[in-house]
Amino acid sequence: MSVLVFAENLKGECKKGAFEALTYGKMMADKLGMTMSAVTIGVINNLDELASYGAEKIYQINAGDEVAFDSKQFAKAIADQCTSIGATIFVAAHTSQGKALAGRLSVRMDAGLVTGVNGLPQDGDAFVVRRSLFSGKALADYEVKSNNKVLTVIGNTVPPAKSGGSSEVVSSDIALSEASMTVLETRTVDGEVPLPEAEVVVSAGRGMKGPENWGIIEELAATMGATTACSRPVADADWRPHHEHVGQTGVAIRPNLYIAIGISGAIQHLAGVNNSKVIVVINKDPEAPFFKAADYGIVGDLFEVVPKLNEAFKEMMAS
């Protein structure tokens, strides 16, 4: 009985999702008196870093130089790895890769599946984990009754924590089967932390009046090292690129800090952001619904407030 964590990579790089999943897996293994190992597929460039997150062993499944994520191919290899080391709990990050894999693995392992969990198993004899439903409007406790379990852990559940030691890296004897699709191209936005991984997000809505006014938003984001986001009508009008759209129909995020500027706070918008740790709202309308979901607020004209906020952050950074 052990925990196996999938350390996902994109183009050879393991990132926050993988580190969080390992940290979560380690904490769960400690709690249940198990050991935790990790599995990777393909060449990992930052293996040393990955090895510092508490896995006893890291099983590396060889895939040649070029391998891109394929849920069918990956699920088979990972399930074989679980069987070969006797892992009964499989953990992945609740990311595009983790979600696509989890259902498949649950079938292969005959396992109970819970996606998007946001906490460790609760105390007691039963295996119970919590997740949120209705885009954050409710919480539910799931009991997994089967011996084998497949979980994906949602971002910001645990902060990535290094363990001090270093994992043993083992080359796995599992062979990768043939791919089920061909990945032709991978395009990512360079130099920016992707929204689902961002710790600080500066987001703006229709209150901006037009795309030509986004300079102040970009400046504030640059000062804070934040990623920019927007409301849906803003993306629909092509004021901002579609990948910035957050909310129920866009990206769901859980940053530490979400700054909402000129956004009314419609329920569908809140659905994608209300799990943020701290929410700051800037709106000229004191009745804007967003204030009800906010921790801090400034009632005022954003064109005056945002530059002042930017100055205050700059001064803080300088001191």
């Binding site: 109970g112 997994v144 009754k145 607020g297």
Partner: peptide
């Protein structure tokens, strides 16, 4: 059935927004 929801609840309400002057 391998997985069952044993309990639902609504999350605690935010304690209320703290407002600041722009200056």
């Amino acid at each position: 059935t391998k997985v069952e929801i044993v309990h639902y609840e609504t999350p605690p309400e935010k304690s209320g927004v703290k407002l600041f002057e722009m200056d």
